[in-house]
Every structure is written in C-alpha cells, then in structure tokens.
Nucleic acid binder design. Structure first.
Length: 737
RNA sequence: GGCGGCGUAGCUCAGAUGGUUAGAGCGACGGACUCAUAACCCGUAGGUCGAUGGUUCGAUUCCAUCCGCCGCCA
C-alpha cells in the first residue's frame, strides 16, 4: 500500500494539437485516469492534469493552410481532445492549454527566474534546422533531417541559450540518488547514456516564427516549444500567478506519465530547468511504450491510426480501458488490433466478469427473491479474495497493470470454480425437497460469491468505472462513488439487503464487431483523405474540414504520445482529367505472392481495356487459364519483382489517377508512377511496402519518368486497385520468386 | 558505427541468484454441467526456452560469437 497521506500530483503529457486525438493519446490518458481513480479510492488527495500543447511553427503553418488564425485552429483541435476525454468520462482535475493566459504568465516567470539566476544567455546559432521537427540538427547544409528525412534549412539565428552543460554532473547525481526517477529501466539507461555523452547548451528561443510565447523584454524571440510545454506542469498549478497555493500544495509531481519518445525532454531538460529555477524535482517520470497496430507502427502516413471513438461506439469506454491496461505490458510496446480487442472483451469481460455477476445475482434473485442471504464462513473464497486485494494492489501500485488485472481475473476463475463445485442449483433442489443443510449451504455459497464480487468490483473500479458502478448498483449497494473503499476488506455486504435491478453488464460482442470497427475506421480514413485533398486551399472551415491538414502531420518531438511517422504533407487538389496508358496483365500464377492471387499489374495506369482483361482474370478461377497463355518458370523469372518501400507519394498535376511515388529498394531509390490515385490517398502510402516490377523499361508519363510498376490486384468492374503486400516482415529490396 | 534491450507453446506474455516432468491466459480439441451472456467447470494440447560454441556434474537460465528485431546517440 503506497503512502496516501501526501497529495498526489499526476500528469499526462499535453498533447500537440497538430494531430487529432487517437488511441495513442487515449492510452496515456486512460492509464493516468486509472491511477488517479485508484489513488482517490485509497483516500489520497489527487490532482490529475492533462491538456494541450498549442504553440510552434507547425501549428502556425497548419492554421495558415486551413485559412484560419492559429488561435482558432488550436481552439478547435484542443476542444476535440477535451471532448473525447469528457465523452470517456476521464477524471482530470484540470486541463491546461499553453495558449491560456495563466500558462503564459507562468512561463514568463520561469523564464525570468532562469534569467535572473544566470542560466540564460544570448548567442548565435548557425546550422541546419528541421522545420518539421522544430529542431536544430547536426548536419551539413542541405542535409536531410536524421529524424524525419525532410530537407533541413540552413539558419543563422541569434538565440537565447540555456546553460544545460552546467547540469551534467548534477543530473548524473540525481539519477544515482533517485533510481526510481526514470522508469522503466531501458529508458533510464538511454537517458544515462545521453547525459554521460556530454551536454551542450540548449537553444531556447526562436525568431523564425511568431506562434509562441514571446521572450519577456525581447519580443522578437519566441520561447522554445519545449520550455514552453514542459512548464505546463507548474503553470497549471498557478506558478507565476497571484495565488501559488496549489503549486505549493501539489508540486513536485509524484508522477509524470509520458510516452517513451519524449523521455529525454522529461528526464534531462525538465529536471535541469527545475534545478536551474531552484524548484523541487518530480518523484517519477514513467514512460510507456507505443501502441502498434497489429505489427506495425501506427501512424497517419500508414493510414492505420485507430480512433478511440470507434471503439467507444461499439464496445464502450470500459472495454477500451480494460484492453489497454490488460493487454499491454506497461512500459513495453503493445499491439492493438480489433480482433484482439473483441477477443479480450468477450473472454474476460463478457464471459468472465459479466457472466459471473449475472449467474450469481440471478441465483440470488431466483432462490432468495433478490435478498442477500445470511452467510456463514466460506474460507476458501474469503482467503482468495483477501489474497487478491493484496496482490492486485501491489501490482497496480507498481504500475504493473496487466498483472494486477490478471490477479483479479484469477479471482473470477476461483469464484466460477467454486460455483461449479458447489452447484447451488443442486443445493436449491435439495433444499426445496426439505433438506435444511442444503439450504444453509446454498446461502453460504451465494453470499460468499456476492461478497467476492463486491471485492472484485471495488478493486477493478479504477479500470472499469462504468461497469463497476453498474455492478455496485446491482449488488444493491447504491452509488459506488459514495462508497468509502479506503480500507477494502472481506465482509462488506449486508445480509438482508436487496439487489438492484439486474441486467447484463458486458453484453457479448457479436462475431463481426471487429470487422464493423475496422470498416468504420476505413471509412473515416477515406473521408479524411478525401477532405484533405479538397481543402488544401483556403476553404470554409467547418469543424470537419479544419483538421484535414492536421491529418497529414502527426507527430512532433513534442508532448505527443504517438509513434513518429514519416509523412510529407502532399495532398494537392488536382483538377480532374482523364489519363490513360497501357499496362500488362500478368499471368495468374505468382509464387510467393501470398494473398494476391488475382494480382494484375496496374503499374502506371489502368486503362479501360486493361480493366476488362483484369476482370476476366478476376472471374472464377476456371476461366483464368483461358484468358492468359501459360508461361514457363523462365518466363516468369524474366520479371524482376521486388519489395519496395514508398518514401514519397504525391499526386501528379492534371492527372486524376496518377500518383508519383519515390520508392526505396534498399540498394537504390527510384521514381515510379502508379495509377492508383483514385483509391489511395498519397499520405496513406508513405512507409508502405509494396511489390514492384523492377526491370520494366522506363517510360515517361505526364512529364515524369516511371522506372517500374507497382503490383496490385484489380478489383470489380472498374478495376479498383488493391496494392499487394505482405503479412510477414519483409526486407526492402527482396526479390519475389 | 557506439551504447542498450529483446528473441520462451498458434497468439499475448510469466519465469528461473543454473538443478527433478519450463508456466499462465487466450485460441483449438475432448468431456461434464445447466445457475448464467451457446456462458461456466474438468481434461488434453507435446514449445530443440533465436543459432552455434564455451564454463559446469548439469544451462533455456552464466560467458562468447552469430542471426533477427527494436530503442537511444540533442
């Protein structure tokens, strides 16, 4: 049991509003919410902060693209985040936005304190700057950003610098003295290695753009986004305001929950800033891993971002919370898939907890008219429940959520086993036949089960707040939020109390729930892509159209809790025009191509003629040999098929079907044109591995040279392309044969 | 390239300061039951614990090398 006598200040990162909220943000926030709820349950004074990070050049540019003022832009996206958290019933105590006055005031104070204490000075920086990442990079002029691959700009700026170099030893001492500061161990190792490698002073102002907090007394400078953003943790508590009481009460934070990609900022810069300002340091910074979609990184550029709304609509918030905390080992990368979600939901929530509650309460209803019977001792169950209180608490408080839940579900299994072993339905029959001993045993069994469920419900509440409240009501205990559960122990159910109205807590999800969610996501992605293409120039700013530019950029090395994708923003509105070119259908037999049995090559452009051919090929398998003459293996081997990864994808002006791709073959990069623009949004293709015909003679299309063809299945009447790909990991450049 | 990590049943993961038959959940299969959300309960499923070499009476657990994957290196 943790010490709950002191205030507990808990934060999520503030999310960068250049991306719309997705399941990665939800993960971070849900974890934090669960922790906050448990601490409150234990009677601790909790302050739980989240919010949005709204400054920076990228925001400025996105707003410009959307044709609105940066403030309006951030207002809208920030509201989306907050709206989602509210929809999910998250219990944050405060929501900070870096564009708020209270924040700016606090940042100014922090700046002034750092200045006064001699940790800021003016210097000149000349070097490469990555606009995308808003980061200076060490590289020669014209070099690509090592992080995102975009071309850097050479800048020479007079900047303010923070004397980070002065903190190298103090930070190393701090890490040694406070081993729990950085968790998990891997992140700690990384941070240690980084600091040991030597610290240079940090540039903490910019003059190249305006959208930020001006440097006090030198308004041509804007304060570096990271200094601005990190300060939210104290400005939200009133640091720099007339009333700093909350700051004094809650600071330092007990727990900063972050995504692993921002550990350096939180474990090096942030403590250094605080030390420089003479402020207390946080107790712990805990970095979680990334949420992968199936096996691959989730990112807008891959078009595989999962929105939380879809899951909420189909299975509800508790299902999502449970999945995130149960399925993912906290601290490690985890994998999300709709199938896994539905499976977890059905196995653990519907069949497990939900069914247990249902069968137990139904029997109390049936055999005792819904009145909790008088219990006598049921040692085995009581012992199991008490053990569970212990184990669950220890694991949860150690942030080992998956194993904490595992222990709770072990109790579910114990109770289910107990019911099967005791067979209350048999006891009831014997009791009806006049056997008093059976009647007593029946009471004992059902009372014990109900009590065990009560314990379980209280434990699981931080993870499943809605469901727990429902079960609580069904147990006849009234409002869970009114209950005092500081000292949870066996024996809280009162015999004689009446159950509430019964009903399923977790209705079973049907088989196609996963497919439904997947379809919803695909529709959404398609709409977003369509909107992105339409709204590039200034256009009316409906709530839907505004985030379109946002869709194309997702991560900033900022307080953002998602993977870092590689995605150029290249959606251009293209005037429609018919284009056509010839292409070759390939023989039906393509060894090694796995799922793409009906593959045709739509390399450059799918012509009407070719579509027809492809359709013939798509027809029943028996028809295929007639359509295309047989070839020998030697014929096939003349075709050099290789795996390539798309680096750049953009529309070709004045061609509505054509995309210009730059692909990486490992040994070389080349340009290919593909007639797939009607089906694939360019931004959804970047990073994707495709199959190309590598030895096709080059030819020019619309003024661009195409060096190869992209392989895709041709579907339906209109030959809608579907790119060939792999379920397994494949190396770029690998030959298909 | 430097540093760090990972690779255990179909899937997600535990675990061992080296020691008899390597675990859990899910999925699959067989059985049983009928209170319950076609749920629950019982049983079975045979994974060279990434590969090779070394230390040892004995290694999946220690060491080395290799392969694969990943992270950090402003």
């Amino acid at each position: 049991m943790p010490d709950t006598s002191t205030p507990f200040y808990l934060t999520t990162p503030i999310y960068y509003v250049n991306a719309r909220p997705h399941i990665g943000h939800t993960y971070t926030t849900v974890v934090s919410d669960a922790i906050a709820r448990r601490r409150r349950l234990l009677g601790q004074d909790v302050w739980f902060l989240t919010g949005t990070d709204e400054h920076g050049q990228k925001i400025e540019r996105s707003a410009e693209k959307a044709g609105i003022a940066p403030q309006q832009f951030t207002d809208q996206v920030s509201a989306e985040f907050r709206g989602l958290w509210d929809q999910m019933g998250l219990t944050y105590d405060d929501y900070i936005r870096t564009t708020e006055e209270r924040h700016k005031r606090g940042v100014h104070k922090l700046w002034n304190v750092l200045k006064e204490r001699g940790y800021l000075y003016k210097g000149t920086y000349t070097g490469q700057y990555c606009v995308w990442d808003e980061l200076y990079v060490e590289a020669g002029p014209g070099a690509a950003c090592p992080d995102c691959g975009r071309i850097t700009e050479t800048v020479s700026e007079e900047n303010y610098f923070f004397k980070l170099s002065a903190f190298e030893n103090r930070l190393l001492e701090l890490y040694a003295e406070q081993p729990g500061l950085i968790q998990p161990e891997t992140r700690r190792n990384e941070v240690l290695a980084f600091v040991r490698g030597g610290l240079r002073d940090l540039s903490v102002s910019r003059t190249s753009f305006k959208w930020g907090i001006p440097v006090p007394g030198d308004e041509s400078h804007v304060i570096y986004v990271w200094l601005d953003a990190l300060a939210n943790y104290i400005t939200a508590l009133g640091y720099g305001s007339e009333d700093e009481s909350a700051f004094h009460k809650y600071w330092p934070a007990q727990l900063h929950i972050i995504g692993k990609e921002i550990s350096r900022f939180h474990c090096v810069y942030w403590p250094a800033f605080l030390m420089a300002a003479g402020l207390p340091l946080p107790t712990a910074v805990v970095a979680h891993g990334w949420l992968l979609f199936e096996q691959s990184k989730m990112s807008k550029s891959r078009g595989n971002i999962v929105r939380s709304e879809t899951i909420l609509a189909v299975l509800g918030a508790d299902a999502l919370r449970y999945f995130l905390l149960r399925e993912i080992v906290f601290g490690q990368d985890g994998s999300f898939s709709f199938d896994a979600l539905v499976q977890r939901y059905n196995a653990d929530l519907a069949n497990g907890l939900g069914n247990l509650v249902s069968r137990t309460l139904a029997m109390i209803e049936k055999y005792f008219s819904g009145v909790i019977p008088e219990a006598s001792a049921a040692e085995s169950i009581q012992a199991a429940a008490e053990q569970c209180i212990q184990t669950f608490g220890e694991r949860f408080d150690a942030l080992d959520f998956s194993r904490a839940l595992e222990s709770a579900w072990a109790l579910v299994a114990v109770i289910d086993g107990y019911i099967s072993e005791q067979a209350p339905w048999k006891l009831a029959k014997q009791a009806d036949a006049g056997d008093e001993a059976s009647r007593e045993q029946l009471k004992t069994v059902l009372a014990a089960c109900a009590e065990a469920i009560r314990v379980l419900t209280a434990l699981v509440y931080p993870v499943l707040p809605e469901a727990a409240a429902k079960i609580w009501t069904q147990l006849g205990l009234g409002d869970l939020h009114q209950a005092d559960l500081k000292d949870l122990h066996w024996g809280g159910l009162q015999p004689g109390a009446r159950l509430g109205a019964l009903g399923p807590v977790f209705p079973r999800a049907d088989k196609d729930a996963a497919e439904r969610m997947q379809a919803m996501e695909q529709d959404n992605a398609r709409n977003a892509a369509a909107q992105a293409a339409e709204t590039a120039p200034a256009s009316p700013t409906t709530p839907q159209s505004v985030p379109a530019p946002v869709d194309q950029s997702i991560s900033h090395p900022n307080l953002e809790s998602g993977p870092v994708p590689v995605s150029p923003a290249t959606a251009l509105a293209t005037p429609p025009e018919q284009t056509a070119d010839a292409s070759l259908p390939l023989g039906a037999f393509m060894p090694g191509l796995g799922a793409m049995e009906d593959a045709a090559i739509v390399g450059q452009i799918t012509t009407p003629a070719m579509v027809e051919t492809a359709n013939v090929n798509d027809a029943p398998a028996a028809a295929r040999p007639d359509a295309v003459p047989q070839i020998t293996i030697d014929d096939f081997l003349k075709v050099e098929l290789r795996v390539a990864q798309i680096l750049v994808a953009e529309r070709v002006p004045k061609a509505d079907k054509l995309l210009r791709l730059e692909v990486d073959l490992g040994y070389e990069q080349r340009q290919i044109l593909a007639g797939i623009a009607e089906t694939y949004a360019p931004e959804s293709l970047v990073g994707r591995k495709v199959v190309i015909v590598a030895n096709l003679a080059p030819r020019k299309l619309r003024g661009f040279e195409s060096n190869g063809m992209v392989v895709a299945a041709s579907l339906g009447e209109h030959g809608k392309p579907s790119l060939a790909g792999f379920l397994d990991h494949v190396e770029i450049g690998a030959r298909l044969k």
